[in-house]
Computed example of a mutant assay.
Amino acid sequence: MTAIDTYFATRATVRAYTDKEIDRNLLINLIELASHAPTTGNMQLYSVIVSSTRQEREAISPAHFNQPQVTSGAGVVLTFCVDINRFCKWCSINDAEAGFDNMQALMYGVLDCSMFAQQFNTLAEMHGLGCCYLGTTLFNAPLISEVLCLPDRVIPLITLTVGYPAASTVISDRLPVKGIIHDGLYHDYSGDDIRELYAEKEALPENIGFVRENGKNTLAQVYAEVRYPRGMNEEFSAVLNNYLDKVLFKADPIKRDE
């Protein structure tokens, strides 16, 4: 196994950071390198908001349910946004009509932004930094948008906390690779397939404890009924749909004389 193989096999999420500052030039260089990730039509439909001061990180923290890694140590918070605004303004001043107020354009931006963020994550970790993806960005997109003063057509998608690791980390479990590869055509899973693929995950002591602590009978029940229940999914879906209507699908058109 090569050094690169080892890195990917052993990488882990870092949720606590030291007080060592991230050099500004290093951060800018990593962002620039990450911008060479693949992008739809070379449009680069993304931007990143850097929250580096304690005040800036504390301002964004409630939108992420005050998770401690947001304000931990001297880390920074990076909010990766789908940015259709910049592209549409470029079109506007060049007498071009951009038809980007639709789901397809949003997906362009989601793809671009995701690849950009993940390339940054990999580069940062290869330079000795630790990262944590926050799963709360799309839950509270309207609040994040307000805190960061995002205009129409700029949508927060991914948040990474970044800093120098304060402690050792635990590698998360993963499904066997045979469970995610489909040769030629999609092979649907039988009940026996599912039981085999998830057996190791379900047998981990921490997951057995997770089931017990939540008063459930199976790990699947914890995920589907406690962590990501239908009611919560539907509530946040409605919030997100309303927000997207307002800032993208039904946003005021950009005037050509701007």
Results as ranks from 00 to 15, higher is better:
37 A>S: 15
42 N>C: 03
132 C>E: 05
13 T>W: 06
200 E>P: 01
54 R>Q: 09
109 G>P: 13
63 A>F: 02
62 P>L: 09
94 N>G: 08
155 I>R: 07
121 N>S: 07
35 S>I: 00
5 D>H: 11
167 A>H: 09
9 A>L: 15
117 A>Q: 09
154 V>P: 13
226 V>C: 10
248 L>T: 07
70 V>W: 00
62 P>G: 14
105 A>C: 11
100 F>R: 05
67 Q>C: 00
129 L>Q: 08
95 D>T: 10
85 N>R: 14
221 Q>C: 01
126 M>Q: 11
200 E>G: 05
250 K>R: 14
99 G>P: 00
174 R>W: 09
88 C>I: 15
106 L>M: 15
235 E>C: 04
138 L>Q: 11
99 G>H: 14
186 Y>G: 05
130 G>I: 09
127 H>D: 15
187 H>T: 12
101 D>F: 04
193 D>Y: 03
225 E>D: 15
203 A>G: 07
23 D>R: 08
24 R>T: 14
65 F>L: 14
142 P>T: 04
129 L>E: 02
26 L>M: 14
221 Q>S: 15
122 T>A: 03
159 T>M: 05
43 M>D: 03
231 G>H: 06
88 C>K: 15
200 E>L: 08
13 T>C: 10
167 A>Y: 05
47 S>N: 10
63 A>L: 07
144 I>A: 09
87 F>W: 03
62 P>Y: 13
164 Y>S: 02
97 E>Q: 09
195 R>L: 13
70 V>C: 03
149 C>N: 15
118 Q>M: 14
24 R>I: 12
35 S>F: 00
24 R>N: 08
228 Y>Q: 06
215 G>S: 06
40 T>Y: 02
74 A>T: 00
147 V>C: 00
166 A>M: 07
189 Y>V: 09
94 N>Q: 09
31 I>R: 06
149 C>I: 02
164 Y>K: 00
216 K>M: 12
258 E>P: 04
167 A>N: 10
250 K>M: 08
124 A>H: 04
81 C>S: 12
53 T>D: 12
250 K>Y: 13
255 K>A: 14
224 A>Y: 04
84 I>V: 13
76 V>P: 01
147 V>N: 07
17 Y>H: 08
43 M>N: 04
107 M>A: 12
225 E>W: 00
192 D>H: 03
66 N>V: 02
33 L>P: 02
134 L>V: 11
221 Q>L: 00
112 D>T: 15
79 T>D: 13
159 T>E: 05
242 N>V: 04
49 I>Y: 02
227 R>G: 00
238 A>L: 12
14 V>N: 05
222 V>F: 07
162 V>D: 00
60 I>K: 01
239 V>F: 03
118 Q>I: 06
209 G>C: 06
20 K>L: 07
141 A>R: 02
225 E>H: 06
224 A>L: 15
152 D>P: 05
13 T>A: 11
56 E>S: 11
7 Y>E: 04
172 S>W: 01
144 I>E: 01
78 L>N: 10
